[in-house]
Design a protein around this nucleic acid. Sequence first.
DNA 1: TTTTGATTGTTACAATATAACATAGCTATC
DNA 2: GATAGCTATGTTATATTGTAACAATCAAAA
Lengths: 174, 174
Amino acid sequence: MTQQAEMTELEHTSTIHDHSGCREKAIHTAEKLCSQRGVRFTPIRREILELIWESHRAIKAYDLLDRIKPHMGSAKPATVYRALDFLLEQGLIHKVESLNAFMGCSYSDHRHDQLLLVCVQCHEVEERPGERVMEAIAMELEQAAFTMQRKAIEIHGICGRCASSSSSSSRAAN
Amino acid sequence: MTQQAEMTELEHTSTIHDHSGCREKAIHTAEKLCSQRGVRFTPIRREILELIWESHRAIKAYDLLDRIKPHMGSAKPATVYRALDFLLEQGLIHKVESLNAFMGCSYSDHRHDQLLLVCVQCHEVEERPGERVMEAIAMELEQAAFTMQRKAIEIHGICGRCASSSSSSSRAAN
DNA sequence: TTTTGATTGTTACAATATAACATAGCTATC
DNA sequence: GATAGCTATGTTATATTGTAACAATCAAAA
Ligand SMILES: [Zn+2]
Ligand SMILES: [Zn+2]
Ligand SMILES: [Zn+2]
Ligand SMILES: [Zn+2]
């Protein structure tokens, strides 16, 4: 209820690196994995994954819907959610539970749990393996006699870039 | 999309311990803290907190609404969400992000981060301090140059009780 | 080619959450 | 006690997020 930077739908590409490479790599990995697994990487699924990879921000289902509608008049909520379900099942994206939003997985070639660092200023989300954290959780669960099925570990705060550029300029710039 | 035990609204009290003690303790702590802080623990807020503490399960906002309506014809979504906002601000409850639901805080006399163990069978949620996990996260964040504001750490799986009683009987019994 | 299962289209709706403004109730002074 | 200002609640409306159900289409396999 406090801060919520207002940004247009277009200010979403990172200024930090050549981001188109991220998207292309992700799509290529998705093609390979789907082929290996005998599941279909259909045009809708590809387009949703591409849209998700247009930034390192998590994106909401209805924002995805708005963006595919120009290309796909027939798109409806179910269109988007079905593609998201598929991408989640295949481990190609993650859901950020605390945002009700979705982001591309940076390590989709193997199943894993992830630590998500959500910047409340630039809204980028960094995925980290966090091995030490996962080990500590495993120990905790053993103590608790709890059998894990899945984890959601999400940290909200200020990323390093925002912190260093924080005096004033270029805030919320990507 | 796999399991979702169907339970009536009434099967929500734990069979494991004298649960009324949990609720009374929580209400007493809430009274004390609100008084110390000079904030008002109004009847609506108290009733919502009592309802949340009717079980160790996380409860959804609209289920709370259904339950207070008999006593409060005027109750509307905003009634519930405002009480929830207050209780969250005061650290008396936690939101389980991965369920869009709310649970009583077991350690509300001091601010803390928590590890939530969500049983997908009996739907109880256990809150643990998880100090080792928090330390590991702190180290990870230092490496990542990330300044934390808040955490959500939620594990879904099977609790010890459900695992031991799992052959058949008394499943989903509380 | 036919069949079968998976995918998509379509409609309708359920579930979760907030905005905005009006009314009522406390609390602190005068 | 009056009254002014702040907090809490009532009320209406709407925004956002997510599913159910069934029909139509497409694609892989037999
Ligand atoms: Zn990942
Ligand atoms: Zn940032
Ligand atoms: Zn707590
Ligand atoms: Zn259980």
